[in-house]
Computed example of a mutant assay.
Amino acid sequence: MKPVDLPVNPPIAPMLAKAVASVPPQPEGTPTWLYEPKWDGFRVLIFRDGDEVAMASRGGKDLARYFPEVVAAARAELPDRVVLDGEIGVPRLFGDVHRLDWDALSQRIHPAKSRIDMLAEKTPALVVGFDALALGDADLMGEPFEVRRAALLAAVAGRPNTRTIRASRVTDDTGVAQRWFSAFEGAGLDGIVAKDRGARYLPGKREMVKVKHKRTADCVVIGYRVHKSGRGVGSLLLGLYGDDGDIAMVGGSSAFSDAKRLELQDLLEPMRLDPGQPRPGEPTRWRQAGTGEFYPVRPDLVAEFAYDQMENGRFRHTVKFLRWRPDREPQSCRYGQLEVPLGYDLYSVLEEL
């Protein structure tokens, strides 16, 4: 990561949010909360010191090498000395609306510079800033959020050439925030974050609150992977039937206890499809070809799983096992049961600042 000399320098652990069940209402009197859309991408802290730009992930990973177009935008669009907290996403056109595309974003993390450069041109990212930790020679971390918000707007909003780095919307109206929670999911957003307008920036602390979309779906178990220890089931592979009668893999479920892994292995081993040999897993940015082998099983078992969002016909994140559904026929587990958010264009979320 490039060295910078700013009032706030890396490494900095970003401030986090704790989950709550619903959008918190404003107390009587002066509104306390400022509500923002929850952007679902890679968390990023951007440090600009003249020509030097550093970009750190939540875990401290150097993101600048993977997003050269964002580095160039920081030099062109931001003040000479600034530290911003935000989220990187990749907008893509789905039908007639733009959404954040998690798959396209994930593909941007690649070891080959040639591919990084190609994807920077083919699937350019944007950054939505939602906090400012420093501006000029001022350390803003001890200032109230509403002061840092004003600094963010001074750094990003209102600059006519700003296209790659934007500022998140905010409202102090609980009703508006609740409408955003439903409407903005259609643009690929993940929920709502509420921030105390008077709070300082506390690195690594869960001082904000977040409300995320949670749903359930009944899925067919179509296979499993063995746990990395070699004992028990590491993850279940899940499927849904389409209108054509074919079943498609839609995601996976993991994070089982030791006892549950062994229980699942005892249940699923007799259900392996002939000849009962593992099939190769698809290579991803996390594993190479020839790894991730799984055992396909007869599509006889149905279970209920908790999920947050679908994207491109698959669960965006790993889903959580809830319970078996012996009352459901596998063929009845179809895409039609899934709640599909209304289309809402990503740039409409940004342009109404």
Rank of each mutant, 00 (worst) to 15 (best):
114 S>H: 11
179 R>E: 07
170 V>T: 13
163 R>Y: 13
179 R>C: 02
167 A>P: 10
113 K>P: 03
166 R>K: 15
120 A>R: 10
129 G>D: 02
176 V>S: 12
168 S>I: 13
111 P>T: 07
128 V>E: 00
139 D>T: 11
169 R>V: 07
135 L>D: 01
154 A>R: 15
109 I>M: 11
128 V>M: 00
179 R>H: 05
115 R>P: 01
177 A>Q: 13
150 A>S: 12
177 A>R: 14
155 A>Q: 02
114 S>V: 07
157 A>V: 00
176 V>T: 14
172 D>W: 11
153 L>G: 03
116 I>G: 02
129 G>I: 02
118 M>Q: 14
128 V>A: 00
143 E>F: 06
125 A>G: 06
115 R>V: 06
142 G>Q: 13
127 V>S: 09
147 V>L: 12
167 A>Y: 05
147 V>N: 10
153 L>V: 04
116 I>Y: 04
121 E>V: 12
134 A>D: 06
131 D>Q: 01
180 W>R: 11
119 L>V: 04
137 D>Q: 09
151 A>R: 12
132 A>D: 05
157 A>W: 03
116 I>L: 06
124 P>L: 08
176 V>W: 04
174 T>W: 11
138 A>I: 08
127 V>F: 12
161 N>H: 11
151 A>P: 06
165 I>Q: 07
112 A>C: 00
114 S>G: 09
149 R>H: 07
175 G>C: 10
146 E>C: 14
168 S>L: 07
121 E>T: 14
132 A>V: 10
163 R>F: 14
165 I>M: 03
174 T>E: 15
131 D>F: 01
137 D>S: 12
118 M>W: 11
108 R>Q: 05
122 K>V: 08
135 L>V: 01
122 K>R: 15
138 A>F: 03
108 R>E: 01
146 E>A: 15
179 R>I: 00
162 T>M: 13
150 A>C: 05
118 M>Y: 13
140 L>P: 10
148 R>H: 12
172 D>Q: 15
156 V>I: 13
117 D>A: 15
175 G>Q: 14
147 V>H: 13
135 L>I: 04
167 A>T: 08
162 T>G: 13
108 R>H: 04
151 A>H: 05
129 G>Q: 05
153 L>M: 11
158 G>K: 04
116 I>K: 04
150 A>F: 01
123 T>G: 05
166 R>H: 11
181 F>I: 00
172 D>H: 11
114 S>L: 06
180 W>Y: 10
153 L>H: 10
170 V>L: 07
142 G>I: 08
127 V>D: 08
127 V>M: 14
148 R>P: 09
174 T>S: 14
115 R>A: 06
179 R>T: 02
154 A>Y: 02
137 D>V: 04
180 W>M: 12
